[in-house]
Every structure is written in structure tokens, then in C-alpha cells.
Design a protein around this nucleic acid. Sequence first.
DNA 1: CGGCATCCTACGAGATACTG
DNA 2: CAGTATCTCGTAGGATGCCG
Lengths: 117, 117
Amino acid sequence: MKTVLPPSCPMESLLRVITGPWTIYILWVLSEQGPQRFGAIKRLVPGISTRVLTERLRMLEHSGVVWREQAMTIPPAVTYGLTERGAELRGVLDKLGAIARRWEAEGAFAKASPAAE
Amino acid sequence: MKTVLPPSCPMESLLRVITGPWTIYILWVLSEQGPQRFGAIKRLVPGISTRVLTERLRMLEHSGVVWREQAMTIPPAVTYGLTERGAELRGVLDKLGAIARRWEAEGAFAKASPAAE
DNA sequence: CGGCATCCTACGAGATACTG
DNA sequence: CAGTATCTCGTAGGATGCCG
């Protein structure tokens, strides 16, 4: 997604937060599996790169959706989890998910299969 | 937004639909101002290019969120409006918007003012 | 008026290697 | 283990010009 819109709408900001390609998966993992360590999240969200995972977690942390707990031990152990905001978000996302499932069943996202159809 | 995730989650698809930079503004316009013609939307969403507007409208139409009515007159007149799905979506988006406003008031999206803080 | 086709650019993100 | 730094590349998107 580009960065085009200056001041307008708080929804823009929110959508930006939850919209990155992997974001909802991260939230889903933290929501279903509970707080996880960095490496665990990385394993639970297969295919994501450390760079992006870090970036996403930072953004989520910055907007107060996840918390971050760093143990300053020598192999560092960092744990992430959902905050209240994260939980709040989850409620709406669940609703969105319900709609998404229904629409999908209705073929709303049929990708215009080139050959078939 | 990138195209990374293959089959997983219908939410991905939905988020893809509502997530493009201008999409929610388009939906907002159609929701608040009622059905509009192409040029009107373009005027009501300042800064959007025809390319992107067309693209977004196509996507929204394809997933059944907006309808499209084309009058085959000589200066063609094309009108777009929200479908039932669009209205349905609006309900959830309103909830999301409410959250967004509250979070913003709480400073969730404070862009890390480089100097301040 | 509506909307393609084209060109061009810039950011987002993958991969890899390195550090505390 | 948990990141950061760097490089590259793909693609979404802005601008423009043309056509029905």
C-alpha cells in the first residue's frame, strides 16, 4: 500500500495497522495461541521474514495492539502478546471474518479463473 | 499491498478489497452521498487518479460491493452505488471507524513526532 | 464523459549476512 | 535468540495522452 493520504481519516491509520500482508496472521496467532516469543511467531507464520515480522510487531506495538516483554538475558527472550486494544480489535476482525467467509461462499472473491468458469 | 499469501484466509481477500489506499473513501462517498457518477466520485475523492479509481471500482464491483450502471449514450454516463454487501460492509467499517477515532484520541497513531516526545 | 494504454517512479518486502 | 543492515526486485500507483 502506498502512502498517499495526509491527514484525513483515523480509519486510514487503523487500516494501515491491520492491513499489512501478514498482520492479521500475527494477530491471529497471538490471539489463538496466546503470547509468543519472536521465533515462535516466525514459525507460526510460515514464510514471513524477520525484517517484516519485526516491522509489523513494531507497528502493532507502537499503536498499542501488542505488548512486548524483553528479558535482558544473554540469549535474549522477547515475548509478544495482545493488549486490550488487540482484543478489542479481534472482536471486529471476527465480524469481518464472518462476512468474509460468507462472501467467499457466495463467490465474491472468485478470482475470475481464466480457463474455468 | 503485496500479493504474497496464496490460499489461506478469506479475510485476506476481504481486506484486500477494502484496503487499497482510496477504497474506504470511495465507499464513504457512495455511502454518504449516495450513488454517483464516475466524474463525481473523482471530484469527491480529491487526488485519486482515473486509473486507480477505475481499478478500485472494478474490484469493488467484482466482489459485489458496488453496482455499476452504464448508460450507453454518446457522452457515456456511468453511475456507481453501494450494493447490499456494500451496506453490510459499512456496518462493520463504522464499528472500525469508531475504534479508530477513539484510538486516535488516545494517541495510538501518534507518528512518533521525531523532535517531540 | 468514462476509462484504457503507456511510461515511470517509489516504496514494500524477500533474501541474506552480520551483531549484541 | 532477536533483531538490524544492505541489496535487490516486483508491483502498486501517479501522470499523461488517446479513444469510443
